[in-house]
């Protein structure tokens, strides 16, 4: 019995492995945050935040991001406070022992759309919308993958049997994803008048999500540059000091 089970498991592993083997090539995109001094385009990640807030946040949480973090997007403290106040946050218990809702504060984390995972599944046909705080780091292919996933919806090719409730996506591993196409032309309208076709919107929200996953990226690059320049200069000095010291030692 055990042997049969193992054989079945092995066969399953082989077939799923074969599926995984036909890896989809994810094209590389250009991002402002790549490169030696890669940085975030504040306008772009503000637009991306708008996309998250208006579209993604209906199902996806962003639990590691607090309102106060949004200062990095270029918002003023007053803007952050009034933005936070538009959310209702659970708090308590108060002196009567009751839980209550209050307007959000800058120190609050962005509230989750569902109170718990079970509720999230129930509202999404059994699929759990993942938290997006780390999503660009938590998937192979990173931001390039997330961007192409968002615009990678297609009609299923002839002969592909789709499971009920799943959608064909060119870039999703196995191609069957529970999330429906969300990023469409004109899904949001930007205040700054930036183009809002699906490709641009997907790019903006991906850039925002990469900021959410790696909020210290700019400080990292800036510190890195100073550290490496210091080490390089030190290495040159050390090289000449070493050569001078060893001048009379045949080795």
């Amino acid at each position: 019995m055990k042997k049969i089970f193992l054989a079945a498991a092995a066969a399953l592993a082989l077939t799923t492995g074969a599926n995984a083997a036909e890896e989809v090539h994810i094209p590389k995109e250009t991002w402002t945050f790549n490169g030696v001094l890669g940085h975030f385009d504040k306008q772009q990640i503000q637009r991306g935040f708008q996309v998250y807030k208006d579209v993604c946040a209906n199902c996806h949480s962003l639990k590691y991001v607090a309102f106060r973090h949004l200062g990095a997007l270029g918002y003023s403290e007053a803007q952050i406070r009034s933005l936070a106040a538009t959310y209702q946050v659970d708090d308590g218990p108060n002196d009567e022992g009751d839980m209550f809702k209050r307007p959000g504060r800058a120190s609050d984390h962005i509230p989750k759309p569902y109170a718990n995972d079970a509720l999230a599944r129930a509202g999404n046909g059994g699929a759990l919308p993942p938290d997006l705080s780390l999503i660009t780091k938590a998937r192979e292919g990173g931001p390039d993958y997330i961007y192409h996933l968002l615009i990678g919806y297609e009609d299923a090719p002839a002969g592909v049997e789709m499971s009920p409730g799943l959608n064909y996506n060119k870039y999703f591993p196995g191609h069957q994803i529970a999330m429906t196409k969300q990023i469409t032309d004109g899904v949001v309208t930007y205040a700054d008048g930036a183009p809002n076709d699906a490709a641009h919107v997907a790019k903006d929200v991906t850039a925002f999500l990469h900021w959410a996953a790696e909020p210290n990226l700019e400080a990292r690059h800036a510190t890195g540059l100073r550290v490496v320049l210091y080490a390089l200069i030190f290495a040159v000095l050390a090289f000449f000091a070493k050569r001078r010291l060893w001048k009379d030692i045949p080795h």
Binding site: H221, T223, G224, V227, A231, L232, A235, A238, F239
Partner: peptide, 27 residues
Amino acid sequence: PYYVMKDVFGLAVFVVFYFVVVFWFPN
């Protein structure tokens, strides 16, 4: 001082590689 100096030079070269990964390709 001979090998201490040589090790210091080697260390300086090594940390360049280490810090390039830490600060640009940490994952």
